[in-house]
């Protein structure tokens, strides 16, 4: 369905009064992943780790610096906007803040209808009918079409965003923090809707979020990202039951549990995510922890390797156990991207 290989998105940084090239932000730095039809891949990480950039690059709202993106076998990495347009109906995006991603001057009808017009589908009456069906599908009354997005609550606006994304029957939807701006009781309504739509339309999701409980709930597999790189990727159940990377463990232990009786031992991290501008040359997380084996990681290959069926882990001596490291090194001949 979706196959991403060694994807890099670097942004040039300019600084000074006379702007001068001052390096790159390596927002996404060599990420490989794939998503199967009907599958949800969760993508978690702290703010600034590059997860949104990765999502935007996949739907080609950003141009990747290097690497490749294949969607159903078609290479969309280098296509220009004109060539992309007919393909865009296959992949859509749902944004975090529905208030900002819906044009305040357009009626809901016009917002949801726009994809049909752009792709030259259907006549007026037909489009209207489709919009009504979509509104109904996401749980809004048909009368909502006549109103403007700002007249709706946050949860309802997110439903409008979902209806728009669904309009052209896409195969892949990149959901960028779709529920993080919503109240808990509304959040669960939207999560239920997304799960239901996936079942009905065999959608694939790339589900980007920072809330690990939400990600676990919707995902089949989960990828953990740290400073532009994936550090671990495994089936959702596995990654929560048996995390192998130190960063994944720290991230999981930090989730506050809504049960006062559960007192989990917390792994408290020192410091913050380092800047992706000129990141540490070796293991970024090893650097944050001032790990004694950090020196080994400079110049080393820290890409993902397979330690169990479907379980991929970065071969980083600072962050994984010696047994895992040995297993990864032994199998390094067969190491490849998780495809």
């Amino acid at each position: 369905m979706l196959d991403v290989r060694d994807l890099c998105v670097h942004f040039p940084v300019r600084s000074g009064i006379i702007p001068r090239h001052a390096g790159f932000v390596r927002a996404v730095d060599g990420v490989s992943l794939h998503i199967q039809p009907g599958e949800t891949l969760g993508l978690v990480g702290e703010s600034g780790c590059g997860k949104s950039t990765l999502g935007k690059a996949i739907v080609r709202l950003l141009k990747p610096t290097s690497g490749s993106i294949h969607l159903e076998g078609t290479d969309i990495t280098g296509l220009n906007q004109r060539a992309l347009r007919p393909l865009r109906r296959n992949f859509q995006m749902i944004f975090q803040d529905p208030a900002e991603s819906l044009d305040p001057r357009m009626s809901v009808q016009a917002i949801i209808e726009e994809p049909f017009i752009i792709h030259g589908l259907g006549d007026r009456a037909n489009r209207r009918k489709q919009v009504h069906e979509l509104l109904d599908r996401v749980g809004l009354p048909a009368a909502a079409g006549e109103r403007y997005a700002f007249e709706f609550s946050g949860g309802q606006r997110q439903r409008i965003g979902i209806a728009r994304a669904l309009a052209l029957k896409p195969k892949l939807i990149v959901c960028d923090e779709p529920v993080s701006a919503l109240d808990v009781s509304v959040q669960s309504q939207i999560l239920n809707l997304l799960v239901e739509l996936q079942r009905d339309f065999a959608l694939s999701y790339l589900f980007i979020a920072h809330d690990l409980s939400v990600v676990k709930h919707v995902s089949d597999r989960v990828a953990v990202m740290y400073l532009g790189k994936l550090v671990e990727l495994a089936p959702a159940e596995t990654i929560y039951r048996d995390p192998r990377h130190a960063y994944t463990k720290a991230l999981l232990s930090a989730i506050p549990s809504p049960d006062p009786k559960v007192k989990r031992a917390k792994i408290l991290l020192e410091g913050d995510v380092p800047s992706p501008i000129n990141p540490p040359p070796g293991s970024a997380f090893g650097h944050r922890m001032s790990h004694p084996r950090y020196a080994e990681t400079i110049g080393a290959d820290l890409s993902l390797g397979r330690i169990a069926p479907g379980h991929w882990l970065a071969a980083d001596p600072c962050c994984i156990s010696n047994e895992d490291l040995a297993a990864l090194r032994k199998g390094s001949g067969t190491r490849q991207s998780p495809a």
């Binding site: 808990v184 009781s185 959040q187 669960s188 309504q189 999560l191 239920n192 799960v195 690990l212 409980s213 939400v214 676990k216 709930h217 919707v218 995902s219 089949d220 959702a236 159940e237 929560y240 999981l252 989730i255 549990s257 809504p258 049960d259």
Partner: peptide, 18 residues
């Protein structure tokens, strides 16, 4: 409120209480 939040123990893709 308590039932509508997914926790690590909630079965995957189960319908959440709303």
């Amino acid at each position: 409120l308590l039932q509508s939040i997914p926790t690590l123990e909630t079965p995957s893709k189960a319908v959440l209480q709303t």
